[in-house]
Design a protein around this nucleic acid. Structure first.
Lengths: 89, 89
DNA sequence: TCAGGTACCTACCCAGAGGTAAGAAACACT
DNA sequence: AGTGTTTCTTACCTCTGGGTAGGTACCTGA
């Protein structure tokens, strides 16, 4: 629960399933997340080893996030949560 | 996430899968939960329609909790969370 | 020179998860 | 009279998820 048990972590994993994506792209795909939470949750996912961060020393900066193998293993959880949510509503 | 996204709700659903159980029994099966949280989380599960409460007007009181049909549908989520947790550790 | 984009960080606020500790109602049994 | 059993309740504390709002660094392009 500590690793993936929050509203935004589930949605981030769900979005990252489509492959490596940069910060701004995630922000666009989750219009309602605040920048603070986006950074914060991404950082925790990286610390948990579910996501890797690729930072390119360019100007303007470019940072990409990608699921790790462990992150892939979390996708079934995300799926079942989303399936339950849809069916419950 | 609001419905089942907490440490103890997952474990309560997991324990209630074995059938209707009374308060004291759940308390024994989850030795680390505080009484406050046990009552609180059970109440929320009841409000969410995942669990039903059967109270018998006896002395000493007897109260039993049981999964509803919606509660049963949440079990796959619980399973995948627990499976992920085990494998991750 | 100045607006703009990109990926952050900071301070402040609120609600809820979770813990500890104590007590309450009601009867049974010694 | 007192102790125990069972299901809660209440008060107080801390930590974190989540939001709003604003600021920072660096370069690009008009």
């Amino acid at each position: 629960m500590t690793l993936i048990g929050s509203k935004w972590k589930v949605l981030l994993l769900q979005n990252l399933r489509d492959g490596r994506q940069r910060y701004g792209e995630l922000k666009r795909r989750l219009p309602d997340i605040s920048e603070k939470m986006l950074i914060h949750e991404l950082k925790q996912l990286v610390e948990a080893g579910l996501v890797t961060k690729h930072a390119y020393p360019e100007i303007p900066p470019r940072v990409e996030y990608e699921l790790t193998a462990n992150g892939q293993q979390a996708l079934p959880v995300v799926d079942s949560i989303i399936a339950f949510g849809r069916q419950y509503l």
